[in-house]
Amino acid sequence: MNLDLKAINQCVRCGSCRTFCPVFEESGWESANTRGRIMILKGLTCGLQPDLQVLGSLNTCTTCGICTENCPAGVNPPEIIENARRQLVSLGKMTCQQADLSRNIFASGNTFGDGRDRLSWLTDRGLLTKKADYVYFAGCMNSYRYTETAANTFALLNRFGATMLPAEQCCGSPLLRTGFDARRFIDENCRQIANTGAKTVITGCAGCYTTLKKSYPQDFRVLSVPEFLAERISEMDIKPLDLTVTYHDPCHLGRHNQIYEQPRQVIRAICRLKEMKTSGKAARCCGGGGGVRAGYKDLSLKMAKKRLEDVPGEVDYIVTSCPLCIRNLRDAGAGEKVIDLVDLVAMAMQ
């Protein structure tokens, strides 16, 4: 295997990651910790065979990046691990869950393998203009699971001249996170974005955001919905709500892209904000990212349950800006108490 030995060797095995890795916290086995994963990668370069246990170690990393944030040696483990997943997949080494996920996406253009129309939630297709300054990129989760959020987001953004892609495809994030090639989807989405003439793509999904921003050609500006809303909040007809909410930082907005303040700015314009026990750079992962929810649902939900322990008392809602986080936190027991930032804004605009 052609792994980046320089990056791997930067790890001094100090074990700092034991304090932070949410997967290790649940498992307790060293192979479920960042340091262990890096030792396994080193092992792979010295003859260790990528059996199911090895794949389990590498594939249970949520790529949340809290180890990167706290690594004294400056190692970026999610990057190293995603690279290893790619290499293993290219050698045909993958779990059934990885294979199923990619099969779904390649067959249907979405993570669910759902054959329905991606825009079924959009009541007035006349709002989709061929040319626009902004494109709202809904992502698979909001297109198929949280369609009300998609509708709320589009309603908001459309006021500022946003359109949507006529045949949006999965952004490619689940493929890239789990080791597959996403070029086909990237090319297709880029082609459609170019046809709209838009110079800015706005997305409400943290996974889509990080992918559009880091894995797509830099032909357009990428904004997250919280960034866009923070810029435009004064132009919206917001009425303060007598609510107290908390905010869960999605890893791919926060640690991966340093978007911490904008969602808070929007929340504070609407209601009271009470921070979680860990927040910002130190925010605990919901357990849903990196393909972990798809491949290891029980483990993923255990992490989500742990995240819910961080929720302060007496809050009306847990607000976040990522549908993957919403699903995991809801499924872990928080139910409808977890809402998207856009849904909070929609409440304040009613």
């Binding site: 192979s31 396994i40 092992g43 246990q53």
Partner: peptide, 13 residues
Amino acid sequence: ASPGERCCYASDA
């Protein structure tokens, strides 16, 4: 007894 887990416990820093 898996090779991967054993590999993780082969050394300290």
